[in-house]
Design a binder for these strands. Structure first.
Lengths: 365, 365
DNA sequence: GTGAAAGCGCTAACAC
DNA sequence: GTGTTAGCGCTTTCAC
């Protein structure tokens, strides 16, 4: 018969052991200072634990007076129900895991304000529904690890945000019945649910806008290996086709989302004297670096080179010059991701969702 | 005798009910598709649950063959231990709650890249130690709600990031024995642990630097009601004292962290023809807006007005002009916050920790 | 080396 | 209206 070390006396919180010294907790299983629990309230109220449980859940079975007494006691003791135990018993779970893939090569933290906003939007959408948000970073090369919080029962489902290249791993997860939704591009043969903006339309919008403003040779800068970015490039191509122009392939520049690489690319283009009078950047952040670099080399924006970004992060409007960009409806994004996940948990089949993009013309173009 | 609705047959995952329709899960307790559990493995391996438990925890008690068989089975079934149940039994918890206070007035999401980076840094520090991160947004007016994840047993402790004015509520939490650490300023009569950069020194650094570059009238812009910002302003004052100058109080401009307000303030200053030849901004983001506004009104930076920011966010280096700023050592911040929390959980008393700031001189000054 | 059984903090029949 | 009891998925003593 198991008998875990139970101090039967109401043990008055473990005495802190002194000293200001640092750390040292190592990997020991995290203990926790004593917390109030139902049995404490039951004892103090002179009723059984079940009655406390009923009282706290506002069961009509329990005597109003008892209920009041219990409620008051709970409040004054700062008691909150132990969610883990409750979940175990009820087989429910109101936590959603949000997975942020990260590139182990660049060890790049989610540094783009766009993703920050997306997280904020998710936090809003989850909070509004009384759901908790567990954030986990996962090696982008092992996206299947995203299922972990679900398998361990920590979360009811998973939202995966950020770029990636692992279509197949995600399809496998879907087959295994893991409830999850991905922020990203809609791909062929996709067995899982995505939410994302219409990147092709967005790319076309940006490029067409540059043509309208008189641009002749529009550079595309971004890493098309990321599905979303690839689609923006497709939009760029499509705009050319629509305008009856040839999309010069040398104008499509593959660049990762790293400030140094972007600066280097722009400088190399200038050195090569490649002719261009506009740049469509795969993100606003990239546009900022591009504009900065161009100016440092004596090119004026927009007079010499028109620039359009993507995302419409808050900073875009306050940059000098204010950046023209393609807005992705972020707050809608969070809503749809959460909605999609809940629908799956309710047993529905969920298809991909495309968000409308919108061109915001400012002075950089 | 309770008998929760247990489908005794190994029920083959609930059949999805069809249709692409959206949402509808409402507030119903989130169910979860069936997951593998220990008893499944035990049955398949022909051993008892206890043996499986021991095998999976690499107990030396269990026969190597049995252990291998169980391990293989677990792997092939994608089994992961149910952490909730494990925690309940072990009375442990490896989740840390990270609380982001938010201003319900502006309904401002954590929009500053600095906080994003701080979250990233926390995520790194936690991940490195095998801790999970539960993110919760809390009304800045009710910081005592930050204790909730601890009281519910969801987290072993709490890290509170972001600005606030509720010293007293935090002291109360400390008295109640809630394990938590705050990112922020060290205040008098403080009963809780903080980690923060040395804002006074930082403010002094920035201001002294502007003096060195020849500035005569240095504006301070920020909201000193936030303790951290107040201390930066103190640093600004102290730099004046050190230089034997008078800090003209009209040069200290109280401005909230809202782009429109910042722009309006700058424009109002220009209209009033208040004389100033430098601005020390309480954040890089603010510096960007200030520079943009100044330029839009024909002032050159740094020729007419020198500007220094605070934080050294990634964008600062890539702005046009690159922004001089006071760097806060972010990755250290995450480490110290987590370390402080773990130390508390280990029963140690933890004092406030100050991080060294550093001036990064670039072209805006 | 393995299994039976008790219990982590909670909920919900069921009995009174 | 309230208490008793079993059990959510796990770990661990104790017995064999």
């Amino acid at each position: 018969m198991a008998r875990p070390p139970k101090t039967s006396t109401p043990s008055p919180a473990p005495t802190p052991s002194s000293a200001t010294g640092k750390g040292g907790a190592g990997t020991a299983p995290l203990a926790r200072p004593s917390r109030v629990q139902m049995s404490d309230i039951a004892r103090l109220a002179g009723v059984s634990v079940s009655t406390v449980s009923r009282a706290l859940s506002d069961s009509s079975l329990v005597n109003p007076e008892t209920r009041a007494r219990v409620a008051e006691l709970a409040r004054s003791l700062n008691y909150s129900i132990n969610i883990g135990a409750q979940n175990l018993r009820l087989k429910q779970n109101r936590t959603v895991a949000v997975i942020v893939p990260y590139d182990p090569a660049t060890r790049q933290h989610l540094s783009d304000p766009f993703f920050l906003s997306l997280l904020g939007s998710l936090a809003d959408a989850l909070t509004d529904r009384g759901l908790d948000m567990l954030i986990t970073r996962v090696d982008a090369g092992h996206l299947d690890e995203a299922a972990r919080p679900w398998r361990t029962g920590q979360a009811a489902g998973v939202v995966l945000v950020g770029q990636w290249h692992h279509h197949d791993q995600l399809n496998a997860m879907a087959v295994q019945g893991v409830p999850f939704v991905v922020w990203g591009a809609q791909l062929p043969q996709q067995l899982y649910a995505t939410v994302g903006s219409d990147n092709i339309a967005g790319g076309e919008l940006a490029t067409a806008h540059l043509f309208e403003r008189g641009a002749q040779r529009v550079l595309f800068m971004g890493d098309p290996d990321l599905p979303e970015i690839g689609q923006r490039q497709q939009g760029w191509e499509r705009a050319h086709a629509r305008a009856g122009r040839m999309a010069d392939p040398t104008l499509a520049r593959k660049v990762p989302f790293v400030a140094e690489a972007i600066r280097a690319e722009v400088e190399s283009l200038l050195r090569q004297k490649l002719a261009f009078d506009a740049v469509f950047c795969a993100s606003d952040l990239m546009a900022m670096t591009v504009i900065g670099t161009l100016r440092r080399h004596g090119r004026r924006v927009p007079e010499d080179v028109r620039v359009v970004g993507y995302d419409d992060i808050a900073l875009a409007a306050n940059f000098e010059p204010p950046i023209s960009t393609v807005r992705q409806p972020i707050s809608e994004a969070g809503e749809l991701l959460v909605e999609g996940l809940l629908a799956q948990l309710a047993g529905e089949r969920v298809g991909p969702r495309l968000l409308r993009t919108e061109l915001v013309a400012r002075q950089s173009s």
